[in-house]
């Protein structure tokens, strides 16, 4: 259910990185984004994903889409709460 995005998408793979380090890495990546950039984050499924999503929501970042992989999930995250044309 990945959407066609008009933005530059960076990618970080956090498989094997546990909480809270994965959430910190996501925050660092999102804060560093430019206005026309998004980041694709790959997280282990399960508790790791739950904790990271919680942190992303708490920080006010926007989750635009997600894709299930084998034992992992790729999510696309943006800095703004509202990004025109997506989500």
């Amino acid at each position: 259910m990945k959407k066609q995005l008009q933005y530059t998408v960076n990618r970080i793979d956090l498989r094997g990185v546990t909480c809270p380090v994965n959430a910190v890495r996501v925050k660092q990546a999102v804060v560093a984004l430019g206005d026309d950039e998004l980041v694709e984050v790959i997280l282990d499924a399960g508790e790791s994903l739950i904790q990271a999503v919680r942190s992303i929501n708490d920080a006010g970042f926007r989750i635009i889409s997600s894709e299930q992989l084998d034992n992992a999930v790729a999510i696309i995250v943006g800095k703004a709460r509202k990004i025109e044309g997506v989500g």
Partner: peptide, 12 residues
């Protein structure tokens, strides 16, 4: 719903 699909992944 924005159809991000995340709930399908995070439902324990």
């Amino acid at each position: 719903c924005t159809d991000c699909g995340l709930c399908v992944s995070f439902c324990p």
